[in-house]
Amino acid sequence: MSAAVVRPERLLKDLQAEWVKLGKAEAESSERSAGVLRAVTMTVLVAVEAGEDERKALESLSQLMHEHPARAIVLRLAPERGEPLSGRAYATCWMPFGRRSQICCEQIELSAGAENFGEIPRLLQALVAPDLPVVLWCRSAAIFTHAAFAAIAELADKIILDTRHHPDPDAALLFVDEQLRHGNLYGDLTWTRLTRWRQTVAAAFDRADCRSFFDSLTSAEVHYAHAPEPVSARYLRAWLQSVLGTHFPVSLVHTPCEPDESWQIRKVRFLSANGSFDIERPQRGSAEIHVESFTSKAHFEVQDESALLREEISILSRDPSYAKTVRQFAISH
């Protein structure tokens, strides 16, 4: 199959033409139109595999765009290994509620099979939006292990993974540890999913009655629902040890649940010579702190992928808590 040559200038020209077309269409559609607003605050490179992975990623991306309008470049790993490189440019638009002008973001798709995927990094150099941060969201474990990954990652100011989808999450985390120690910025959505848990633990220790446990803590338990030990539970253990001391005993306890109760971490228990207190997630959307007879409930919103991305994208600098946790993970590995 002979493939059309993919040139960055062509893609950028197509984008330009798209803007002119959108502007005209908007002006013709209504006399009251306030035009089209072109919004770019960063470049987001989205590395996905064709199929379900791609569909979910694009869904999250479109939600993310509303809060972080960006030039999105989708790097699609085609199912056929030999599929040649192809590219196209288009715009996605939406009308924010109560406003008169559409907001549009640029989207470029570069697709290739595994054999030709290495042609992509070169093109990217010309396609990223100038003078703005570049974030690589590598949703595909296959692209993470592809030879082209390093060259793509080099273009990015921050790389976001999701290690729970990786066949060997430990290897991925050891790699992340090494990268963080070299000063590169990495994030992991599996870690981001734990923010609410970590926040609830921290809030519990703000209470006067829980603070009294602090000096006499002897151990902690992280209860998880579904075997094998999820990477999130091990992350949480590493975090607790990064705060409480490398050798602080934190055990992972398997507490089986109904298969339809999909959330993994069910409870964190802190034990001390004076007693214990629990932070529990009995339902998907709520958490409870139990200290003796007092129970406090908190909203535990379920973060979809776009919310997790938003959190990671908002941190484009060193993340000391994360680095310490990953270091602890590596030490105890």
Binding site: R198, D206, R211, V243, G245
Partner: peptide, 24 residues
């Protein structure tokens, strides 16, 4: 383990957590 009080809770992560309000 070290002492803690409302303003020195080592579990807090100011980069990611909302600003802390002490119990009140």
């Amino acid at each position: 383990m070290s002492q803690t009080n409302a303003s020195a809770n080592p579990f807090h992560d100011p980069l990611r957590f909302e600003r802390r309000i002490p119990p009140c």
